[in-house]
């Protein structure tokens, strides 16, 4: 994790989103792809530390787009949005090499989304809603990067990976996600759960786990104790 990226302030991001939207309306995804760029005269990176160069950002786009080319060529995701997210998360996490501190900034993701990967974000969210394009926590790239950062390979190796609702539910519980071990073991139990209406069950499970955190500081439990606790908690959870 070595790079920080240029950041696009909110005012510039909004103007840029307008350009992307106009391009999308006029020429679809192909036109949006042509809008990809690697620098902006009003971008400002964090004051100190290593910032990715234009060349590195270009190489980043090349690498990510080549790994995601089969999606770009399809031009639409249909029912495969979750699979797209999961693949994009892995690729982005691997290629961005972003300092996690930098990834906590909205403007960093605004730059990456609106300048470098406008097409990938548009492909995922063709409605171009501001929350998805500007670097808020719901941003098209930020959320999938964050999922990969927190859950790592859990997202891919499970037989029945977490669906969109299950992931959104987990990440809404920010106190749970901050304890990375807790988030991973929780996700693992959900992925392994074999029952009807798993996402409704998962919601209740997340709630049950979160409710334990008020009384107990789960950070002090070792992996085995934490797994035991969560397994027992899961056993008591039912679907409404």
């Amino acid at each position: 994790m070595i790079y920080s990226y240029p950041r696009l302030p909110r005012s510039v991001s909004e103007a840029r989103l307008g350009e992307i939207a106009a391009a999308h309306q006029g020429g679809g995804l192909v036109a949006v792809s042509k809008h990809a760029a690697f620098e902006h005269e009003r971008s400002v990176p964090v004051a100190t530390g290593r910032v990715a160069t234009v060349q590195e950002i270009r190489a980043l786009r090349t690498a990510v787009c080549s790994a995601m080319s089969h999606w770009i060529e399809r031009g639409t995701l249909g029912a495969d949005a979750a699979r797209f997210d999961s693949e994009l998360g892995v690729v982005l996490h691997h290629e961005l090499q972003i300092v996690p501190s930098d990834a906590a900034h909205e403007d960093t993701w605004s730059f990456l989304t609106l300048m470098v990967f406008p097409d990938l974000a548009t492909l995922r969210f063709p409605g171009l809603h501001k929350d998805r394009m500007v670097g808020t926590p719901r941003n098209a790239l930020r959320r999938v990067w964050q999922r990969q950062e927190v859950l790592g390979d859990w997202l891919q190796t499970a037989d029945a990976p977490l669906g969109e609702d299950e992931l959104v539910g987990l990440f809404e519980r920010s106190a749970m996600v901050r304890n990375r071990r807790l988030a991973r073991i929780t996700a693992g139990i959900v992925a392994a759960h074999d029952g009807a209406n798993r996402s409704a069950w998962a919601r209740n499970f997340y709630k049950a786990v979160t409710f334990q955190t008020g009384m107990r500081m789960l950070d002090v439990l070792d992996d085995a104790a934490l797994t035991d606790l969560l397994t027992q908690t899961a056993a008591q959870v039912t679907v409404d």
């Binding site: 106190a175 979160t210 409710f211 955190t213 008020g214 009384m215 500081m217 789960l218």
Partner: peptide, 16 residues
């Protein structure tokens, strides 16, 4: 209301 780490659950939780 149910207490959580660093917060309070907003809604009523009759099961708790």
């Amino acid at each position: 209301r149910v207490a959580t780490d660093g917060g309070t659950e907003r809604s009523e939780q009759p099961d708790y």
